[in-house]
Design a binder for these strands. Structure first.
Lengths: 170, 170
DNA sequence: TTTTTACGTCAGCCATATTGACATATATAA
DNA sequence: TTATATATGTCAATATGGCTGACGTAAAAA
């Protein structure tokens, strides 16, 4: 109770701190994905569909390659999920204007509706956690997750100034 | 640069903050599990084996029911993975002393070696992130993840005073 | 003694990932 | 122009890790 930071000195990462971090990640991720998984199962979809819907919603006119790069799966794996989403009219494809080999991906209205349903669910959870934890904690949460990523993945967030090392440590 | 907390006011969870949280979780978890997955594949194991090894290592003499409760999978699913680990001498079982129906689970020496290998890998990543983020950020990271969990999962951490709401918010 | 609990197992199904091989259309470089 | 590289798709086979349902055994508890 005395010292909020007692277990957090990174220079002395003791067994308990280490395990605590691993378990917090495991359990929070488990719970974070459980409800969307539930929703998706009503549509006969799984977590893979969620990821595709999410990133296409995030980056309209995304190409297949970009999506593969984000998801880090093979095109064969993506193909099954993506073509299912296209077939059932959640996502639509159109040829690229500059490069007509590309299939630019967009959510249809139906896709946007599902996207909202999934996002709203997670929004509630995140809002609750952020509110309970407070603004300073949220900043710390974002900074640690950012640094947990590979160099490569961190680039994706480089436009966000509050995540940059220089601005984060006072 | 000006305001570290600019994007973190939980009362106004804007689209960008929401998406940022979702993506930080997705990418950091993806990268956090990628290397262990690599190691495990050398043994012909997957992430499911990792989870079993981890929690048995964490709680020696754990029963099968406790493990099922943590992992939230069916006993049939666990059975395949667990019996493989027992067969290949990573985990050993012994009857409970009080209740002889139970099979108490323990890591063998071989199991402990694999556990260390996996933990050491993640320790480096966590240590790096903690060091880069700083102690305050670490406290925030832990607090947010804690609150992201279901009520139920949070109980697992209730013995850790630095995660309790009263002590976390000044 | 009966019922419940802890655990295991068999059989079959499904989702999601993999690798390898091959095809097509289009862009780009020689 | 021709050759090569790229973006995408698809077929086939395989593996992992979930699931449900059914059934069985040993031991605890009522």
């Amino acid at each position: 109770m005395a010292d909020v930071k007692s277990g957090a000195n990174p220079l002395f990462l003791r067994e308990e701190e280490l395990r605590q971090a691993m378990e917090l990640l495991f359990f929070s991720y488990r719970d974070f994905t459980a409800e969307p998984d539930q929703i998706l199962s009503h549509y006969g979809f799984g977590r893979a569909h969620h990821r595709v819907i999410y990133f296409v919603g995030r980056h309209p006119a995304m190409t297949v390659s970009e999506l593969l790069d984000i998801l880090r799966i093979t095109k064969q794996s993506l193909s099954r999920v993506l073509s299912q989403l296209v077939r059932e009219d959640f996502i639509q494809q159109r040829p690229g204007t500059e490069d007509r080999r590309q299939r630019l991906l967009e959510l249809t209205e139906k896709g946007k509706k599902l996207e909202s349903e999934l996002i709203e669910n997670q929004r509630r959870r995140i809002a609750r956690a952020y509110r309970a934890a407070g603004a300073d904690a949220v900043a710390g949460f974002r900074t640690v997750l950012y640094n947990l990523m590979d160099e490569d993945g961190r680039k994706r967030f480089d436009h966000i100034e509050t995540l940059q090392p220089a601005t984060v440590r006072r």
